[in-house]
Simulated scan of single mutants.
Amino acid sequence: MPDLWLPGAERHPLSDTAPTDTQYAPRVIWHITWDKNGTAAKPADLVPFDQLVRYFTGAGSGMAPHLLWDPFTGRTAQFYPATSRSKSVVDSAGGTRTNRTGRVCLQVETLFFPYCRVNGRSYATVRNTPAKGLDKILAWARSWGVPDTWPMGSPTWSANRSERTWETRGGHYGHSQVPENQHTDPGPMPKWSGTTAYVPPPFPAGLTPGKSNPSAKPLQKALRAAGFLNITDADLSDAYGPRTQTAVGRFFDAHPQFRDQGKPHDVAIGPHGWTYLFTLAYGHK
């Protein structure tokens, strides 16, 4: 069995452990502590690590993650064992049990806020930090079966959520990608080694509902792989017909931010939706 505790992490066990929903694939949720609001013009000093440890073992225990990670020093503290849920995301009654989804649902609070100042230097995103100790966290996550992928794409500062993806794909998620939550963190994350970026096919010219196009068949395969189209190989065709349009409509229902990239009245997929759909379908492999 993999280690319940990250090797080398300081241990601050909280007693209110609870099991995860193990029928789902393993995953990691990434957060930032966002203790202050710095700006490019007025950065602010990073909050001390020990202050956050005291918070998560005291008044903030109801929001404690598995790990607190300092990307500037590599220091880590752990509050729950891997197989317990932690409490850093909103988990509404009756919906997806967001804190429990997966064989493991490891939550990492990164000690960071935008334009934090460390040793006189300002850092806009976690991607800009030294990311010390990240390799150990990733190795630990891999030991629990978490793949080195972002099923909803690498995080940005915008929210992007799909409950279907959350429930069916293991991997790494930003807080901004977890159902029932409204946060936009962690923002851009480091690009770690061991991950091969998936490159979707370029958006094809002339892909129009009601017309034949060789790219209709790859579109149908991607819709099938992402769970929006129930079709056999024998039914694949170059026709962008009603069945494909209905499946694209389902994709838009799950990801409405892409609907305006095409033509909503005839359910055409646009270039941004195309890229996201193919990444959703195949980027986890």
Rank of each mutant, 00 (worst) to 15 (best):
T168A: 14
H172G: 03
T17C: 14
H31D: 14
R164V: 06
A59I: 08
F251K: 06
D185I: 01
L219P: 09
H272A: 15
L236T: 01
R224A: 15
R243P: 00
P19M: 11
P204T: 03
S15D: 15
R75G: 09
Q107R: 07
H172C: 09
T33C: 15
F79P: 10
E163L: 04
I231Y: 04
S92I: 03
A25G: 08
A205E: 07
V126N: 13
T279W: 08
S88Q: 05
Y24K: 05
G249M: 06
F203R: 06
P202D: 10
N37K: 07
V267F: 13
A247D: 06
T184R: 15
L67P: 08
T246I: 01
L207T: 00
D266N: 15
G174A: 05
S15E: 15
I32L: 13
D91G: 00
T184S: 14
M152H: 08
F113H: 15
K285T: 05
A216H: 02
Y123G: 14
S15W: 13
Y240R: 02
T208R: 05
G273K: 06
H31K: 07
F112K: 07
W192I: 00
N128R: 13
T244G: 08
L52T: 04
D135Q: 15
R121L: 14
A44Q: 11
T196R: 14
A225D: 07
G194S: 05
L277D: 07
C105Y: 03
A64V: 05
E163R: 13
H183V: 11
P188C: 12
A222L: 04
T195Q: 14
V248S: 11
P151W: 08
K217H: 00
N213R: 02
L106W: 03
G210L: 04
F252E: 07
V47D: 11
S86T: 01
P218I: 01
S193C: 02
V118G: 14
A59C: 02
R54N: 12
D260P: 06
H172N: 11
K87P: 01
V53C: 12
D21E: 15
K87H: 11
P26H: 08
Q51T: 08
R164S: 14
L52E: 11
N181L: 05
D238R: 02
Q177F: 07
R127M: 12
G187I: 02
Q107P: 06
P147I: 10
N119Q: 14
T57F: 08
P179Q: 05
Y198S: 05
A9H: 11
S237V: 01
F79S: 08
T83P: 00
V47K: 12
K87N: 12
R27I: 01
G170Q: 02
A239P: 00
E109C: 09
R75Y: 03
